[in-house]
Design a protein around this nucleic acid. Structure first.
Lengths: 189, 189
DNA sequence: TCCTTAAACTAACACTTGTTAGTTTGTGTT
DNA sequence: AACACAAACTAACAAGTGTTAGTTTAAGGA
């Protein structure tokens, strides 16, 4: 493991602040204070506030889209693929709790990268829907409007960042298992 | 139906802007432009930006907490009560789509009213958990960690504001019914 | 016609915002 | 001792922030 660079440290601290108040409500002076330095000093390490947001969101969004593509192309059946998606969200959210908040709530403040982000999200949802539709064709998944199933699952999975930090007592694998029970057995014929 | 006052109109337009960019990113000049007037003119009708946020969030939060209390005290069984909760969210979200965004994302910027809001939310969740626990005692609900069931249901229901405006083709009752299938039959023993 | 009132306006305020420029400090290397 | 470099600093900027004060405008009732 490489040690964290100063830039990475700034981004990590920023993500934490963004989670609490949102990107727009956090000033560079807030961030500097949290780092124990002056605002101007931040610019030795980063180019702009925008860049911090981009660094928080884009690589994580790429992770999600790449991973669901792999899940989609695997040889598992549809229900197993849905379980894999749940595990993916639990895993990425556990490792990037604060980043997930910006991914959910601050993406609209991406400027140059907004279009690219929207494409990543659209691709992600396309793979999700393909898995659901193929599961229905194979009679593995209940015949309910797939948009509604995706909406239900994604709403839950996207909110995980709010609950995971509270549940330090709760085992992560147990969480994924319980979510699978609640989310999947309900749509299993 | 009383006609809308100018103040109510400002609050309605503000809620729409807050949904798109968040409370902090919307300036009083943005709001004024959307109203077709100058920023200073807003203050003939409202006392502060804070007050707008309060008006958007608090009465809606009160609605939720009062309504779930009534549902809890009704004579329905637990599964029917959960259906009622789903209908409640679909109904309030349909009527207040934009307000729901602030309720979800901007509550932390309430200042004077923050504590009161948190109490309303805590009370709401207490009633929800009571319904789940009584349902388990009565063997109507699967024996899964009730926090996880509530988390799953609430994540979905709180995100409705994101999906309802897109689905003008989709019937509202059908939405509530489909959600009940997906969310409840999964936890029904 | 005069008065009241709702609702807009202009002008300005004190403060905060992100960011830049140039400088200093401390640490490790030659 | 001299140097290089990362990383902090001070000072300042132009623009934007929420808000206030006082004024104008248009419509309706006395």
């Amino acid at each position: 493991m490489k040690p964290e660079t100063r830039k990475e440290e700034i981004i990590r601290v920023a993500a934490k602040l963004f989670k609490e108040k949102g990107f727009s409500a956090v000033t560079m002076r807030d961030l500097a204070t949290a780092m124990g330095i002056k605002a101007a000093s931040l610019y030795n390490h980063i180019n702009s506030k925008q860049e911090i947001l981009k660094e928080i969101i884009i690589s994580l969004a790429e992770d999600f889209t790449e991973s669901i593509k792999i899940i989609y192309n695997s040889k598992n059946n549809s229900l197993e693929k849905l379980s894999n998606i749940i595990e993916l969200h639990v895993s990425l959210t556990t490792k990037n709790t604060y980043h997930m908040a910006s991914l959910n709530n601050d993406w609209m403040h991406l400027e140059d990268q907004l279009e690219y982000y929207l494409k990543l999200r659209k691709d992600y949802e396309s793979y999700f829907l393909k898995i659901l539709n193929e599961g229905m064709d194979a009679s593995e998944i209940k015949n309910v409007n797939p948009q509604i199933i995706m909406f239900t699952m994604l709403s839950t999975l996207r909110s995980l960042y709010l609950w995971i930090p509270k549940k330090e007592d709760l085992n992560i694998d147990e969480l994924a298992n319980n979510l699978s029970v609640v989310l999947i057995q309900g749509i299993n014929k």
